[in-house]
Design a protein around this nucleic acid. Structure first.
Length: 355
DNA sequence: AACACGGGGCA
DNA sequence: TGCCCAGTGTT
């Protein structure tokens, strides 16, 4: 593990920055307003895309007071095309707050900064360090990625815990003599060298002190566990009886609950008439005619890792319209045989409804 | 903790 | 074409 206190990579990174830093209009200007605008504008936005907007913005609203006096329509119009328009509205509110409550002087402390609209932990740290040289961390996606690699941290950087872990290390490693340059160096370094995929370790000024590089783990870091969002799926189910037998379907040998048995069902349908129609077509292909009773006999939900079934079960009876053999993935069995088969998850809970 | 916000890059 | 990106505010 690289030494955390006074790590050797910090002066190496600063030396790299002194040579490779990007020249940007808001950089090293000492104007907290300009830095504020540039930070908010560059959130979720590439520098190249946002730069013309920044120049135009400074022509329209050269000072904090100009922005505070502008109308919401004016500022949103100047933001048109950048997206996330609440950034523009909140920036104006924040600036008005500074004019009204802090004498037009951007505050020097994190707590007050974070109380301003649109200024969170990252932006507060960026402004304080870059405008006032306060030793404040500015932890964004770049910083999380860089530190995860440097210190070989396998915690999920998208989780609260992972961010806390890294933020603590950033605060320990932050050089108090050049906090603003250090934070900007991390930004430039993250966008030019320690990039998200296939980092350019061959040209990295601190690879010699990077734990991930030394251990050959750069391709595994950072760890980002994307939360698969659970999609709601209505499932219309028929408990369908032919004489003493129940009709069952074997799910395909792929995907969810593969090769397991289920009652005839249709995904994406919840209305009775639609479900009746769909099930009728399903069994018609098997040579049956369906009579479905419009009585909801069971309603249940089942949560998978990536989807949630909202199941509605109805009872129905079948009559033979054509005499033919069933395909291999369909069968008719008596309820006594239910326990002989592997049920597709929640369909097992519906067996008790057969009578 | 989960979601919305928006446009651009990229598979 | 549809997925991914990443700070902040809201619920």
């Amino acid at each position: 593990m690289t030494e955390v206190k006074n790590p050797k990579w910090v002066p190496q990174l600063l030396a790299w920055y002194d040579v490779h830093k990007r020249e940007l209009p808001w950089r090293d200007c000492g104007d907290p307003y300009k830095i504020w605008v540039s930070e908010v504008m560059s959130q979720q936005t590439r520098i190249e895309a946002m730069k013309p907007y920044y120049d135009n913005w400074m022509r329209l609203f050269p000072t904090l007071q100009d922005l505070a006096n502008a109308s919401e329509d004016e500022v949103v119009h100047a933001w048109q095309g950048l997206g996330y328009y609440s950034r523009a509205r909140n920036l104006r509110f924040g600036v008005q707050d500074v004019v009204e409550n802090y004498g037009g002087v951007v505050p020097h402390d994190r707590k007050t900064m974070e109380s301003l609209k649109g200024v969170g932990s990252y932006t507060a740290g960026a402004i304080l360090s870059m405008a006032y040289n306060e030793p404040e961390a500015a932890v964004d996606g770049n910083v999380l990625r860089i530190y995860a690699r440097l210190y070989r941290i396998f915690e999920d950087i998208l989780s609260t815990k992972g961010r806390k872990t890294i933020t603590a290390i950033v605060e320990e490693t932050l050089p108090h003599d050049r906090p603003g340059d250090f934070n900007q160096a991390l930004m430039d370094f993250g966008s030019a060298v320690c990039i998200p995929k296939t980092p350019r370790c061959g040209e990295c000024p601190i690879a010699n002190l990077c734990d991930a590089y030394q251990q050959g783990d750069t391709d595994k870091l950072p760890v980002r566990i994307k939360k698969t969002k659970v999609v709601d799926v209505p499932v219309f189910v028929g408990i369908l009886q032919y004489e003493d037998y129940y009709l069952l379907h074997k799910r395909p040998n792929r995907g969810l609950l593969r090769s397991m048995w289920e009652f005839p069902s249709v995904e994406g349908v919840s209305a009775f008439d639609d479900g009746k129609q769909a099930l009728s077509e399903l069994v018609a292909d098997l040579g049956f005619e369906l009579s479905l009773q419009p009585v909801l006999v069971k309603e249940l939900t089942h949560v998978f890792s990536h989807r949630k079934w909202f199941m509605k079960a109805f009872r129905g009876t079948l009559t033979k319209s054509i005499d033919s053999d069933l395909p291999k993935d369909w069968m008719l069995i008596k309820r006594e045989e239910f326990s002989d088969y592997a049920w597709a998850g929640p369909h097992g809970k519906l067996t008790e409804l057969a009578r």
